[in-house]
Design a protein around this nucleic acid. Structure first.
Length: 281
DNA sequence: GGCCAGGTCCAAT
DNA sequence: ATTGGACATGGC
């Protein structure tokens, strides 16, 4: 395969996608939509088994001109540490329903738990796929989620009701209609779904529909943005989104993903600087 | 053990 | 148009 600016590791491990397992250094099994494949990256070359190069190219957004995106964002000095930390990190193009469900499950949760919830749903409702020695269940279609009690037994909590109702709307074709809409209208359409408000809608726009201007504001982005750009004072999320739009325009989504990943792993907030070092896994 | 987690919804200012 | 709590569950 070609060798664009790309890091499989940084892309998969940046918290935008939950259906992967690491098999070794630079070696991953990926399950997205109906595609189960193995992806390996050694010395820059990307090798894919179990899916066509077209599928991989689409999923990993290898058509994005990341060299230009990086150069443009790099003109912002405050973004450089995050850009330098994760060269080759790309926004994915995920399956819309799978992505919507995943970020409904993300509400007031954390990455390990989200991944666990998704794996449970797939195990219970999804068809089994095989690729060599890898077994993985497909993420179930929107019609699978009809029984809220059953979902609560899988420990989805209050998210269970959201998932059932969002599934109903998705089964009715809502997510297909969104494809051709301008981003603002697409966002309004997504927000018709229970459990989908500004933040989740922005995640779906960014991670599934390739709307690179979308800027999801979660607790981490709120923290890093208020400290870096608002003097540490709490401001409405809409002010943060407006600031991001103004500063990064159509690349705000890329800025967001680098900032998100960086703020969780490398960034030391001024509020805790000078105290004991924070240790993370 | 209380607090917070890639929030959302609803009711009461 | 804003603000405070409730909502399930798990991890620290």
């Amino acid at each position: 395969m070609i060798r664009p600016m790309f890091s499989l590791k940084h892309t998969l491990e940046s918290g935008q996608f939950f259906r992967w397992t690491r098999r070794g250094e630079g070696d991953y099994a990926v399950h997205t939509g109906r595609a189960l494949f193995r992806a390996r990256q050694e010395g820059g070359a990307l090798r894919v088994e179990g899916a066509s190069p077209e599928i991989a190219r689409e999923f990993f957004s290898l058509d994005h001109d990341l060299t230009s995106i990086d150069a443009a964002l790099r003109r912002d000095p405050k973004l450089r540490p995050a850009l330098d930390a994760y060269p080759g990190l790309r926004l994915l193009r995920q399956d819309p329903w799978e992505c919507t469900a995943a970020f409904i499950l993300s509400i007031a949760s954390n990455i390990p738990r989200i991944a666990g919830n998704i794996a449970d749903l797939a195990r219970v409702y999804g068809d089994l796929s095989r690729l060599g020695d890898v077994e993985s269940h497909e993420f179930p279609g929107p019609r699978a989620f009809v029984d809220e009690r059953e979902l609560r037994r899988l420990k989805l909590g209050f998210r269970a009701a959201y998932l059932v109702q969002a599934g109903r709307l998705a089964a009715g074709g809502l997510l297909e209609e969104i494809e051709g809409l301008p981003t603002e209208e697409a966002k309004d359409a997504l927000m018709v779904m229970p459990g989908v408000a500004e933040k989740v809608a922005d995640c779906v726009l960014l991670f599934a529909y390739g709307r690179l201007s979308a800027f999801p504001v979660d607790t981490w982005i709120r923290k890093v943005m208020t400290e870096m750009h608002f003097g540490g004072r709490r401001v409405p999320d809409r002010a943060i989104r407006a600031f991001a739009q103004e500063r990064w325009g159509d690349l705000a989504g890329y800025a967001q993903q680098y900032l998100y990943h960086w703020s969780r792993n490398a960034w030391t907030p001024a509020s805790s600087r000078g105290r004991r070092a924070v240790s993370r896994v």
